[in-house]
């Protein structure tokens, strides 16, 4: 039977942890997103014609939102688990009646909870700037949750692998950030030469951004089926990997 109270407690604990460092976890990403919205909406956006039938800020906003969700989810999962490894607080979870699948749901769900808190605040800022539209709310929620889950699981893998605080940033600096910015969050791939556009289509982040954008403004540049296969495939693959690592107790169990 699913340990529902246990899972809810893991989510609740993450909310407590998030509120403990609220400037770092909620205020900073919202300010950062607000700056993006201001620059692309008010400063640059007013000088650019409508793009794909919507103001430029509406085209860019889904990418800004995705960037914040990715960062919040990855940081939440990686810092939570790494800190628990560091203090041996992970033993609280190991001695409690959680299955390995429940550990996965607990850690991933906790990170998704934090990223949803960030997403709601950024959506609120977006509304103030008139940057938010939502043509497919259910699709939007599914994309957002799946992307947050993917980066939570990547955060868990990095937290298990890292032997120091610096290593926690390696994946973020060398993989996540470049692939995010090169995934077409601020531009259309129609602006790119054909070879660059083809290369972009190999970047999974392109499908993440496109999925959120299509559910928000109804404009898509990617093959939706391919995007869904990429996202679902990553959720399943990373879910299997993290559950296996928990089962083996890699770096958490003596």
């Amino acid at each position: 039977m699913l340990n529902r109270i246990g899972l809810y407690t893991m989510f609740r604990r993450e909310v407590v942890r998030t509120m403990r460092v609220v400037v770092q976890t909620l205020v900073a990403p919202v300010i950062s997103a607000a700056l993006y919205i201001f620059i692309f909406g008010t400063v640059i956006g007013t000088k650019i014609d409508d793009f794909a039938g919507v103001p430029y800020i509406s085209f860019v906003f889904p990418g800004v939102l995705m960037l914040s969700i990715i960062n919040a989810s990855f940081a939440s999962a990686s810092s939570n688990l790494y800190f628990m490894r560091f203090t041996r607080g992970i033993e609280e979870i190991l001695i409690a009646p959680f299955s390995y699948l429940e550990m996965l749901i607990g850690f991933v769900g906790s990170a998704v909870v934090r990223s949803m808190m960030v997403a709601l605040l950024i959506l609120a800022v977006g509304f103030l700037f008139g940057a938010v539209s939502l043509v497919n709310p259910i699709g939007f929620m599914l994309y957002v949750m799946a992307i947050a889950a993917i980066f939570a699981m990547l955060g868990i893998v990095v937290a298990l692998w890292a032997e120091g605080f610096e290593q926690l940033q390696v994946l973020n600096t060398f993989v996540i950030t470049p692939l995010t910015y090169l995934g077409g969050i601020f531009y259309s791939i129609t602006f790119l030469p054909e070879l660059a556009a083809q290369i972009t289509r190999l970047n999974p982040f392109f499908y993440f951004a496109d999925g959120i954008r299509s559910s928000m403004i109804g404009y898509s540049e990617a093959n939706t089926q391919v995007g869904i296969v990429v996202i679902v495939g990553l959720v399943v693959l990373l879910g299997w990997l993290v559950t296996t690592l928990f089962k083996r107790g890699w770096k958490i169990r003596y």
Binding site: I5, G6, Y8, T9, M10, R12, R13, I93, A96, P97
Partner: peptide
């Protein structure tokens, strides 16, 4: 509180 929660109480 958290430990009790983990145990499903």
């Amino acid at each position: 509180d958290f430990m009790g929660g983990y145990y499903g109480i």
